[in-house]
Design a protein around this nucleic acid. Structure first.
Lengths: 243, 243
DNA sequence: CATACTTAGTTGTACTGTCAAACTTATATA
DNA sequence: TATATAAGTTTGACAGTACAACTAAGTATG
């Protein structure tokens, strides 16, 4: 185990002051049953545990022996809860204050992840998906996690206006109407079909596969994400939003 | 002074593990002499100080007794170095790893600030402005600050394409050509005059004052930022960049 | 087997805002 | 008074979206 950290450094100099607690939290999004959903975990009720039984974002303390850096820490926590190793992961921001954790001054580094709908089939026992209703989630969240979730939803909504982020919420193969539907779910407004198709097809983002989706009506072309494709940023937002 | 933090909590429970160091750094931008410039401070050379004499971003440890939250900590450090109390301040991200500080596992919360050119007249003794040349700064920076600076410049450049952020780099009164010049300095390319004017004037962002700027040619209308104006997000970027 | 129904996908016109370049206006200076 | 210079406007071309109608391809139904 590493030496007690509050007192001594590694080079002989003493820097003697209290350190904030350091945690990482992850806002995990997926689209389930035609709604944007977020993954929450229920907190334990051990002695001294703040917010016992409350729902919270998956996360926890940085382990300086296991976690090489913050992103590795976020991936570890994500893997623990969902089994998914490499989803889309983006840093969201950090929240730190004297008041947010009853155990003392603490700072959390928040990330947000996008998962294909069915990726997290074997969920951890204490984890559960919650649909977002009017920007929030039903249970009252621990710490300042409601605020972090709110920031994540706003950031996602905002970026969906001009990026291809929803592509990371899709299964391996999907149709253009499928993708449009996901955009519409997140933005909560309908989009123009022809403009949407033109934009997506000219973005060098997806490629058709040899199969079609068949159903009770006209078949639809199936597409897949081009390999190792970073998100695309469009030069315009979708609907010049209101005024 | 607060009790030693590595060992005991405030509620009787012991959470006994090493904590990362927690710092805040600020990337302070201003436009000086027709170039984007960033504020750096020279590090001391006391015993055990990492990167002695190297230039670094202004910042340092969170003081859990003085700083209510992370943003307050950032404002304190900014005030110390520039005397400026309330510039535009935005969270940039966080960098944390075992390797970035020789004193041990550390995480920094980075902010970026935009200052009017002449706001920071009385600079701290150890602080100095450095112009950005091809995205970077001349001296080799301490820690991973070159990486943080790079992220800040990229974020600023990116947001300038579709927001009114440069307005926060302007003095109290300025002309539209002045503002366009600042956009062009940051983006490092010329913009269309008429489209620029149309966009800015229809954005409900600035208002004319009763005076004109006089010079050796046609006078220009002076404007000022509308009071308490949050940044404006435009529905398009400026030049559909290349392809 | 024809017809209705549904969703996929295309086409065409109107509109909005940028691009590009020319043009007009207002001042100082020679 | 002419000239130079920068401020600000006008005009037409163009790109991409909005809106709406249209065609295409399948299943279901009588």
């Amino acid at each position: 185990m590493a030496e007690q950290p509050g007192r001594n450094g590694t080079n002989g100099r003493t820097f003697d002051f209290p350190r904030p607690l350091t945690t990482v939290d992850v806002v995990v999004f997926a689209v389930r049953e035609d709604a944007l959903a977020v993954l929450l975990v229920q907190r334990g009720a051990g002695e001294g545990e703040p917010f016992p039984h409350a729902w919270a974002l998956p996360g926890g303390f940085v382990d300086i022996d296991r976690d090489r850096d913050l992103e590795a820490c976020a991936r570890r926590k994500l893997k623990d809860k969902t089994g998914v190793a490499s989803p889309y992961l983006e840093q969201l921001g950090s929240w730190g204050s004297a008041a947010r954790d009853p155990r003392g001054w603490s700072a959390t580094h928040a990330y947000f992840a996008l998962l294909p709908a069915l990726a997290a089939a074997p969920l951890a026992a204490d984890a559960q998906w919650f649909p977002l209703v009017s920007g929030g989630v039903k249970p009252k969240l621990a710490f300042d996690h409601a605020e972090i979730l709110d920031a994540a939803v706003k950031r996602l909504r905002n970026k969906v206006e001009y990026t291809s982020l929803p592509a990371y919420l899709m299964p391996a193969e999907f149709t253009l109407p499928d993708l449009q539907k996901v955009y519409e779910i997140i933005l909560d407004r309908p989009l123009e079909k022809s403009a949407f198709r033109t934009r997506m097809l000219s973005a060098d983002l997806i490629e058709p596969v040899a199969r079609m989706r068949r159903g009770p009506n006209r078949p639809a072309q199936l597409y897949r994400l081009k390999k190792a494709r970073a998100p695309v940023f469009f030069a315009r937002t979708f609907n010049p939003p209101e005024g």
